[in-house]
Design a protein around this nucleic acid. Structure first.
Ligand SMILES: [Mn+2]
Ligand SMILES: [Mn+2]
Ligand SMILES: [Zn+2]
Ligand SMILES: [Zn+2]
Lengths: 153, 153
DNA sequence: GGCCCAAGCGCAACCGGGTTGCATGAGGGA
DNA sequence: TCCCTCATGCAACCCGGTTGCGCTTGGGCC
């Protein structure tokens, strides 16, 4: 990947980002491809702050980042989760739904938040209500932290 | 219930609030009993703003209210939920646990948030992780709004 | 009932994640 | 290449929640 004066030329990795934008009939801009590129290769949901720091070199304005993320949300390209610290985290939507189709896990030790893609949220039926969507959050220790905790015994 | 110059004398309804505070070894203050009294008789989890407006007459400072709520949290007298609007809502804890023992429902039409006391959160088991707590949020239509929606057809 | 001090309170200023309005810049269809 | 629309940057703003500090008060003690 080449960078010149902070601007990145479109390379291999960006192809997927551009394709996603084209499919969603969104304009292909530098900020959007960079964000998508990051999100596509991120293990975990990222905050706006984390995204901005990762793209520091390119110096995008935070408002622009928020607006791009909102656009992605509107197109269901990403989904957004609210954690206990009341900051949003964004992750690519793999399932086609709007993003509450899988639970999210937060490790109380390392603080990592993970999308549990592939794990189903058990359906709850509620007398008299119409349930339209569900979200589930889990807390505990992630595999790495669990192992450390066990070693410390 | 008597009020004089904005100060409320302790009456029948406050007894329970005072008892809760005594049991938790917390000082009995006007702000705390008023808050607890409200929360004890509230149907739904309330925001700090709603609590403050309800106690407008007594003119408590919002910092004091936040601090009282934090104290209640520490004593597990109340639990707190984070909704999509990223404001906290507080409700009396009936179950003894720290409050994530039941799901919470938000009506997309009237905006009401409800504690689903008595409904269990289905346990999820996650390979390699230690799950310590779970939360579940549901969205849809509450019974009242569902009925209106059906009438409108 | 009065004394005393830790704990609770009010105030003002602050913090930080997210938003808005508006002028300028750039994507992309024709 | 032109031009319109939409994206961007900037500054100011919003608002839920926090912090520091000096004053007040609950309640244990005599
Ligand atoms: Mn996810
Ligand atoms: Mn509840
Ligand atoms: Zn961890
Ligand atoms: Zn409703």
């Amino acid at each position: 990947m080449q960078r010149v004066a902070g601007k990145r030329f479109t390379g291999e990795r960006d192809k997927q980002a551009v394709e996603i934008l084209r499919n969603a009939k969104l304009r292909v801009t530098s900020c959007r491809t960079s964000l998508l590129d990051l999100l596509l290769h991120a293990k975990d949901p990222l905050t706006q702050k984390e995204l901005m720091e990762a793209l520091e070199e390119q110096g995008f304005n935070r408002v622009t980042i928020y607006r791009a993320l909102q656009t992605f949300l509107d197109s269901t390209i990403v989904h957004r989760i609210v954690t206990e610290d009341r900051t949003w985290r964004f992750a690519i939507t793999h399932c086609g739904h709007r993003g509450h189709c899988h639970p999210h896990f937060t490790c109380r030790r390392c603080g990592r938040v993970r999308c549990l893609d592939g794990v189903a949220i058990p359906a709850v039926d509620l007398e008299g209500h119409r349930i339209e969507s569900q979200a589930m959050y889990l807390w505990g220790l992630c595999p790495a932290c669990l192992q450390e905790a066990e070693l410390a015994l």
